[in-house]
Each structure stands twice: as C-alpha cells, then as structure tokens.
C-alpha cells in the first residue's frame, strides 16, 4: 500500500529535482551533450548558497549568486570542448573533478556545512500558517520555479539565438554552413544548463538537506537522465511543442522521486540502494526502443512463418 505521505514527498522532492532535470534536458536533448559537469555544479550551487547565507547574506541574493557560479562551470566545460577539442564527456568529467576541490574550498575544508541562518524555506514558511509541513513549502516553490523556468526557456529557445542553439545540437555541420557560431552556441547552452543545475542544488540544500554536502552531486547526471527519459516514455508519443516537452521532463522527475520514495518504504531496501535502483530504471528506460523493435520483428517473423505454410 502506497501511503499518501509517500506520494506527497515524492511530488515535493520531484519538483525540486525537476529543476535539475530541466538543466539536464538542455544539454542532453537540445545540445546532444551528456554534460557531467553538473555533478560538480549541483553541490557548487548548494555550497555557494549555504556559505553566503551563513556569512549573513539574504537567502534570495545568495541563491542568485549561486546561479551565477553555475555558468562559470559550464563555461569551463564549454571551452575545454570547443576550443581545446576535448570530447564532451571528458570535458565534463574534468570540470566535475576540478569542482570537487573548488567546492571543498568554498566549504572551508568541510564535507558538510549546515545552514545556520535564514533560508528561502524559512522565509516562505512565514507566508504559510504555522505548522505547515515541509512538503507543502517545497511543492509551492517547486511549482513556481518550474513554471517560471518553462516559460523563460520556451521564450528563449524560440528566439534567434535559441533556435541557433537547437540547430547546433541537431546538426552542427549544417549550422556552421548557415553562419551559426556552433562553438559559441555550445558554450551558451552549457552555461544556461549549469545555471539551472546550480539553482536546483541551492534550493535542495535549503528545502531538503538543510545543508550543503560535498558529495551531494554524485549520480545527479543519471538521476537527471532517468527523469528525462521517464517523462518522455510516459508523455511524449507524437509531435509536441517545447513547453509540453519541458513539462514532461518535470513530470518525469516527479515520477522518478515517487518511485524511489515508494521503493524505500518496502522493507529490506536501504537508502543506499537508491543508486542501483536508479541505474536499473535508466537501463530499462533506455532499452525500451530495443524491446519494441524486437517485439515488432517477432510479430513479422511469426506472420512470415504462417504465410510460408
């Protein structure tokens, strides 16, 4: 039996993780670039936010600064990839590994830094009746941020520059012949994606973890991919506009988090099992096209056998 509170927590967490997933969607689906930088950018966003809050900065401002730190990581990956021609995956890994050291420095050599002062969560809580549960706060903020992101990105990817980024991910040779600076578009896309991922890290630190953890980025790329793919498998079956596709990604993140929450309520599963469950979900989701093709082929074969007789 799935309890209501499990679903509520799945939705609340899913909406915050959906922000990360939107970032992953930009690189993975639009730029056709599996960007591993985000495993470092996610804790970067959290670390910058928490350290700045603890030094007395307004939480909203601290979150904004985190969103400016993220693009720097994307810029580094973009330069490695486009200027120095290092393959995308490796460029991302290099930035990710470098960010580990950066994050540890930001967090003054600690693996965990708890939020000591105010946070967006506390500020939002004052707008609700006393005793409102954490899930409601996360859900509210998650919905607002996801809606704002979808609206902004829908606009951006409809502009001339946004179209040029989409073309770059789709067919870079053709894009260059159309006078598009594909290197620049790749860099812009990576910076945008990492800004969003940093925002996600910042909000999850404030709403869920209550702290920044240097290892919190581990596996985020796979979580992001899992959510993107789950959303597409469930909701995308024909031509859809861009806003709907982003919505499917948000939906995927919620489904993913709910699956994880549900699995963890089954006795015998431990929190550390999340990673293998995620890996299995992604593997299954990625292999669905192969299964479909095999099923179709079997059908044809059987039909051919019958006709043969």
């Amino acid at each position: 039996m799935i309890r209501l509170v499990t679903l509520q927590s799945g939705i609340a967490q899913g909406l915050l993780w959906a922000i990360l997933t939107i970032g992953v969607y930009i690189t993975y689906r639009i730029l056709d670039f599996a960007d591993l930088t985000i495993e470092g950018t996610f804790p970067l966003g959290a670390a910058v936010t928490v350290v700045l809050i603890n030094s007395g900065m307004n939480p909203f401002l601290a979150t904004a600064v985190a969103m400016l730190a993220g693009p720097l990581a994307g810029l580094s990956t973009g330069i490695l990839n486009t200027v120095f021609k290092i393959p995308g995956i490796l460029s991302g890994i290099l930035s990710m590994i470098a960010l580990y050291s950066v994050n540890i420095r930001i967090m003054s050599d600690k693996a965990t830094v708890a939020i000591a002062g105010n946070s967006i969560k506390k500020i939002v809580a004052t707008l609700f009746p006393a005793g409102t549960v954490s899930n409601t706060l996360s859900t509210t903020v998650g919905i607002i941020v996801c809606a704002a992101l979808i609206a902004t990105l829908y606009w951006f990817f409809g502009t001339e520059t946004g179209c040029a980024i989409r073309a770059t991910g789709n067919n870079s040779k053709m894009s260059r012949s159309m006078g598009i600076n594909t290197d620049m578009m790749t860099i812009i896309g990576l910076m945008l994606s990492n800004a969003i991922v940093a925002l996600s890290g910042s909000l999850i630190a404030q709403f869920d973890y209550g702290s920044a953890l240097v290892n919190m980025g581990q596996g985020t790329i796979v979580i992001g991919l899992a959510s993107v793919i789950i959303g597409e498998v469930i909701l995308i079956h024909k031509e859809h506009n861009f806003a709907y596709r982003l919505f499917s990604v948000v939906f995927g993140a919620i489904v993913y988090r709910t699956i994880i929450s549900v699995v963890l309520t089954i006795s015998g599963f431990k929190a550390t099992d999340i990673k293998i469950i995620t890996a299995i979900i992604v593997a299954i989701a990625l292999s669905i096209p192969v299964f479909k093709e095999k099923a179709a082929m079997r059908k044809k074969r059987n039909l051919a056998m019958k006709e043969g007789k």
Partner: peptide, 13 residues
C-alpha cells in the same frame, strides 16, 4: 535559420 544566414542572431523572436 537560413533566412538569418547573413544576419547577426539576437534575442528577438
């Protein structure tokens, strides 16, 4: 995309 081959790409629609 082709129509803008000769132009600079901005943030207009």
């Amino acid at each position: 995309l082709a129509y803008r081959r000769t132009k600079k790409r901005s943030l207009s629609w």
